[in-house]
Nucleic acid binder design. Structure first.
Lengths: 191, 191
DNA sequence: TCAGCTGATGTCAGTGACTGCAATCAGCTA
DNA sequence: TAGCTGATTGCAGTCACTGACATCAGCTGA
């Protein structure tokens, strides 16, 4: 990431990266499928955490709650890496190729969660919809968390967006003001 | 697509494609940013249709309904291309690189819809959530439509999944049976 | 009819991502 | 210390993609 940020993603050759790591280009490609993959090294552990969280949710939890709880639990681990996350995200959003890979990772995350829900007895298409909704919330909450001037917790944004998406799909929340028996007020932000 | 299906995506060189089209490789790259982009030629018109649909929804429609209506309207245009769509989709799902591009296209579709909703006065994060939910439903409904043995209309699947996602986010539909004060019975389907 | 302009296409050479294959190396074991 | 095994390296090759420049087709105005 140091190199990518120094001279930009496309200006950085795989040879550069390998050299910096004290390796050969050939060896780099034995560890990473391609040049982009380096930035997504931590994806698997995160997926395991999320899946475990969903799998171990209380039996009576609704699918969406199982997903929400798991996301909230995982969110804590992000707090200490806010600066890192922000730099990484800036890099990703600045390059279409990296965005593509990010979306692919999120999609496979969603698929894994859906599979777990199915294992819990949730039928299709509810399982996939709950998982995908979770991914949507996660993605947006992540952005909100990164640029929240008030530095509220990641988990806070996740919860708020689950509330909001519930309202949205219910056909409410058309207008900014909307007093609801919600634990927290719904937040607004600029684009 | 003919070439890709004949000899596979990676076995097909850009030179092959250009030759088949009676062009030079160089010219190919003047029309398409890269090798994958050929398969997504029709994306822009679709986006315009969807955006127009959302923009011209009745002023009193909720965001999610504006999106749903637009998707349903657009769905009609797909009916006559079911076989083509199926072949294309088989190709895409078989190649991770193409899936990535597909996801990216859907994401930009979502962004365009969100922007349109904002122009209609829908605040964030409701606009983005409604748009993303629409994309989720669209994607899944598309799959269902393609493999529906009963050959029900694309629009049918879209409507059904909007119903279902409403139930899911509301915390219903955990179990096949779930007697709750729900307006409609929850729909089920196989994977 | 033709010089001149313009936009599309072609030629050519080069860079760099990625792969297959064979060689080498490091650490361990019998 | 010979031999085995897994990790690393060297090398050669393919192919996607790009920049610079030449060429061509069709149009325009004199």
């Amino acid at each position: 990431m140091a190199l990518y940020r120094e001279r930009g993603f496309e200006k950085t050759t795989v040879e550069d990266i390998a050299a910096r790591a004290g390796l050969t280009e050939r060896t780099f490609f034995r560890y990473f499928a391609d040049k982009r993959e380096v930035l997504f090294w931590g994806a698997k552990p995160l997926q395991d955490l999320l899946v475990d969280g969903v799998a171990s949710a209380p039996a009576k939890a609704t699918p969406i709650d199982a997903v929400a709880q798991s996301l909230v639990a995982v969110a804590a681990g992000f707090e200490e890496r806010r600066d890192f996350s922000r730099q990484r995200q800036a890099l990703i959003t600045a390059h279409a190729e990296l965005m593509e890979r990010e979306l692919a990772k999120l999609a496979s995350l969603g698929a894994a969660i859906a599979a777990t829900l199915r294992r819990r007895g949730v039928p299709e298409p509810a399982a996939t919809l709950a998982a995908e909704t979770g991914i949507t919330v996660f993605k947006l909450a992540f952005e909100h968390w990164l640029r929240d001037a008030k530095r509220r917790a990641f988990a806070h944004h996740i919860r708020a967006l689950f509330e909001e998406i519930r309202a949205v799909t219910a056909g409410k929340a058309t207008r900014p003001a909307r007093p609801r028996p919600a634990p927290r007020a719904t937040r607004r932000r600029r684009t």
